[in-house]
């Protein structure tokens, strides 16, 4: 028989402020573990090659491709998925600016934007573009997404100024 790394270990993952037990193989990606064991399906499986960003989650506040991260690498690090983000300004902006159509790329884009607003609140157009190029959207044509991101950054600026 071909064993193919089937042995599993229980580890703890810190997801959305909770500590959760998961049983993983060494080869399991964070995307598989989040989706299949924790039911956190907001992270989407769309290319499994780091090309489309639909699986984006935040690890230590940094946007990461969950399809290219091994679950074992994220033990002891705070992980945030779209399910952990509630009533945020970026989510509201995506709704208000009509930046959502099929919704499949939306969680990845929103988490990437959220991290951008936190890490680079003064981001200029070039920086926004550089960050957003890691995510693909096939429905919108990007204009509405751009408006949503810029609006959030502007709101952040206004908030910190007042």
């Amino acid at each position: 028989m071909i064993s193919n790394g089937t042995s599993k270990t229980v580890v703890k993952l810190h997801v959305n402020g909770e500590t959760r037990d998961v049983m993983i193989r060494s080869a399991d990606t964070l995307l598989e573990t989040l989706r299949e064991q924790l039911g956190l399906t907001g992270a989407k499986r769309a290319c499994q090659n780091g090309d489309c960003g639909a699986c984006t989650v935040l690890v230590n506040g940094e946007p990461m491709h969950a399809c290219l991260s091994l679950s074992i690498e994220t033990v002891n690090q705070p992980i945030m998925t779209i399910e952990g983000l509630r009533n945020s300004s970026i989510q509201q902006e995506f709704v208000d600016k009509w930046a959502i159509q099929c919704g499949y790329c939306t969680p990845g884009f929103i988490l990437n934007c959220h991290a951008l607003a936190n890490k680079r609140p003064d981001a200029d157009d070039e920086t926004i573009e550089e960050w957003m190029q890691s995510n693909l959207c096939r429905c919108t044509g990007y204009q509405e997404i751009k408006e949503a991101v810029k609006s959030v950054l502007q709101n952040h600026k206004n908030d910190s100024a007042s």
Binding site: T41, G42, A43, K44, T81, I82, E83, L85, R86, Q91, Q92, F94, V95, W98, I100, G103, Y104, T106, P107, I110
Partner: peptide, 12 residues
Amino acid sequence: DAVAKAAGAVRY
């Protein structure tokens, strides 16, 4: 469908 999609709550 926009609010549920923004929350990542839609199951495909």
